[in-house]
Design a protein around this nucleic acid. Structure first.
Lengths: 147, 147
DNA sequence: CTCGCTGCAAACAGTTTGCATCCGC
DNA sequence: GCGGATGCAAACTGTTTGCAGCGAG
């Protein structure tokens, strides 16, 4: 688990000042498991912090990515999505429900990396791999009514 | 390989009229191996077809996705990218050069699918998987000057 | 002839930028 | 007090929408 002190340390380490906004934004990002956009985060925090501006949320999230406190998530819409979980993991794109959920699987990651290592791709230095699993959510109640 | 007749058939099959614009746009999409945006396609075709409008390119590409003539490609920028190659394949995201290139590997696809089948993920019906390989391009000339 | 497709332009949404002010260190 | 961070608003970029006219079937 990431603690407040961890975040503060990370920020300091990256020569970033510790500000209220950054802590609030990071906290919100950690809580959101849905790979939020800047706007989503903004909506979440503005109840308790009305003074935080949308522009700052954008700038802050970009900074977090720069400093490895967050990652950008791939998406097919034209929105920038973020993820506080920087550990290696995969994403399941549920097409019917439009959700993007995490799928952790160390073993699978290793299998893929080992396979690619054997292949020796030329002129490319692999940094990490991420699996995109496209699927449909099976809703038990729903599946009855759909033929 | 996809021929002109194939496209026409596909269009007819989906109850779409065969228009000059659609053929031109599809041809351009096939030629672009870089997973182009609507704007990129627009630039490519407007030399020979000055009358085609950007709005139409957007609408047409969306239609193609609807009809399975094209696929949306995931990206971290906030752009919609398309791909005429609807066969199952993986993408290598070259972070330093901002390119997205294809990586075909039937064997790897199979390994992953087999692995996931064994896992039996609940409440999810997997449609396909796609590997995102994040990497840096190694430019021989460049690597000398960078320490 | 009809209905779907296109071109155009205006509207929209999300992101970025510039700058004066603020505040962590 | 200095320099980076913030808030605000305006500018930008890419996408979507609405509608009149066009053209494939």
């Amino acid at each position: 688990m990431v603690t407040l002190t961890d975040i503060k340390d990370k920020l300091t380490e990256a020569n970033l000042k510790i500000t209220h906004q950054r802590l609030v934004i990071y906290e919100a990002l950690l809580k959101c498991m849905n790979h939020p956009t800047a706007e989503y985060i903004y909506d979440k925090i503005k109840e308790d912090n009305p003074s935080v501006s949308l522009g700052t949320v954008h700038k802050t999230l970009d900074k977090f990515v720069e400093v490895d406190l967050a990652k950008k998530v791939l998406s097919t819409d034209h929105l920038k999505r973020f993820d506080a979980n920087i550990s290696k993991h995969n994403h399941i794109y549920l097409e019917n429900s439009k959700e993007i959920i995490d799928y952790h699987d160390e073993e699978l990651q290793q299998i893929i990396l080992d396979y690619l290592k054997k292949k020796k791709l030329n002129n490319i230095k692999i940094k990490d791999v991420q699996l995109q699993i496209n699927a449909d959510k099976i809703d038990k109640k729903l599946s009855v009514s759909i033929k």
